[in-house]
Design a binder for these strands. Sequence first.
DNA 1: TGTTAGCACTCACCCGGATAGAGTGCTAAT
DNA 2: ATTAGCACTCTATCCGGGTGAGTGCTAACA
Lengths: 343, 343
Amino acid sequence: MQLDERKLKILQAIIRNYLETGEPVGSRTISKYTDLNLSSATIRNEMADLEELGYIIQPHTSAGRIPSDKGYRLYVDTMLEDKVNEVENMKELLIEKADKIDLLLKQVAKLLAVNTNYATLVTKPQYRSKRVKFIQLTEVDSDHLLAVIVIEGNIVKNKMIDIVESIDKEILLKLNIVFNTFLQGLDLTEINMAVIQKMKEQAGNYSNLVSNILDAIAQAISEEEEVEVYTSGATNILKYPELNDMKKITELMGTFEEQKQLTELVNRKAEGSDAGGIQVYIGSETPVEAMKDCSVVTATYEIEEGVYGKIGIIGPKRMDYEKVVGILHTLMVQLDDIFKKKT
Amino acid sequence: MQLDERKLKILQAIIRNYLETGEPVGSRTISKYTDLNLSSATIRNEMADLEELGYIIQPHTSAGRIPSDKGYRLYVDTMLEDKVNEVENMKELLIEKADKIDLLLKQVAKLLAVNTNYATLVTKPQYRSKRVKFIQLTEVDSDHLLAVIVIEGNIVKNKMIDIVESIDKEILLKLNIVFNTFLQGLDLTEINMAVIQKMKEQAGNYSNLVSNILDAIAQAISEEEEVEVYTSGATNILKYPELNDMKKITELMGTFEEQKQLTELVNRKAEGSDAGGIQVYIGSETPVEAMKDCSVVTATYEIEEGVYGKIGIIGPKRMDYEKVVGILHTLMVQLDDIFKKKT
DNA sequence: TGTTAGCACTCACCCGGATAGAGTGCTAAT
DNA sequence: ATTAGCACTCTATCCGGGTGAGTGCTAACA
């Protein structure tokens, strides 16, 4: 048996309808809803076929049909039409407030959540290479040294270092020079014992201090390793009755708190149905177990060459894919604009 | 009618029992549970009295009794016995991992949530005075100036400032000196037009740049204004059936996401039943509407003179007050230790 | 051969009544 | 003052029938 034009239309009608109502869809509904002018009986026959093909499911005998994961997948892959962009004003909203990328991303997450009524997540950009660009040591007071470390991509990190006694200005200047000449352009992996040894030699009496500072630097750089994730609108998923089950809710909410699992979603390379960096996971396709009754749409944004992060939307399987994909698409474009202007 | 010894004992027994089970407590249960050796009938009479006095409530005729807010309040105020400290190891756990206060506080929130099975919240310390301690400008590359601002309490902030052309080293040095001499020790409110004017004069051709930098500084300082709140274990409240109501859950979870409302809890000055900085809000006593079916216990920690934050635990009204107060108490002591060592 | 009308059947859901059980309040006895 | 006993109340749960949506099948039709 094959999927002909008519079956496709019926499937589409079923999915559309189900997306709206969240209720199983019956044959009579479709017979009225579509412009095919077919009786419910005919629809029933077709629906039986569609079920046999695995695109729709009957939750129980004598209930209407709901789309299966396979059905959604087909829908997403072939039947999406671009919806009118509903977030024209997003751009202004964003630019206005955002002076720092962190803040901007948080804003994005919130904005998206409010606009879509789904849960959203945004990851801080990942910097592939973490080369040291610039280091500066300053004495803040007699007990504390401040190390400012600038990593490629203009990420600034700072660490306080405890010291036992005030350090001479000359020495500090020298230390600064040593650190910069030795470490500039180096990656965490490239700071090996040989380099460290040489630096200690140059530092003379202060080799102890050098170790401390190096520790601080190493820490500062590796901190950046863990992806930071902002989420918003987690409560939105409470709005969808099909997810209103204590067990599911607990699991889902838990996942949102435990940000670790979320990174799973995000570390996936784009693969499969990937149009413009947008990726759709339906039901059990998602890499996160707790979300097997949800769908997830992710998009990748890029701040500059090699510096990218992800934006994700999590909702029920019957999420409005067209809207979501549309919004993400335009959002990507607008973010692109912003970042290009900024750099 | 007065609360005599026996009534108190019965009330205590009712509350204890209810805390454990979450179910209304009947007279027979109490008659067996206590060592008073009274029959259920006698208990019933006493319970009728207690209800008349407003300490307990019957959810409906012919159900057992549950404590009223007034009952809980009496219990918390007079009947708490210190429980054995169940988190001896907290200290080690904390010290080990925490190198940054931010991280430590997040850890605390998580640890508390796991140990208590309630939701927790921790605020970043609030620095009362925000005097500038130290400012440093550095040229990172030809397009960017990095401003590092250290505020009293050793908070470090940094801002990137876009520049149109590379700045001469001499000039930069001079700017550094100007900023530090003029601004050191000043509060945001004290940086007024007079000061700014003087600085601009000194800067000569670079007065434009000075404005930019000042903006950045003002921003950095005022950023600290908004209290940051970390939460953990929000999902724990899903475990208590008396809160398992979609409306309540949505509201509560929403409050946890919207951190703004949480600051309400935290900005309250200690008042009323306040033993060692620990404060208990029962039911409608809490300042946050959404939590009127919960109880909240907060404690104040102090990092150093004038630098303090709050730790809060949010759970059902039948939360284990003894345990919570006990844990918070020991936690405060241990945090004190840590901070004293660190400074 | 594809489409349709008709009909019997299935199953989830709602409703009302019956029942059990927990717990109370009252009374009378101790 | 305490207690045993009992009638009473109210909730939760189970049960059985009715309802309605929706199906699958068959037979008639174009």
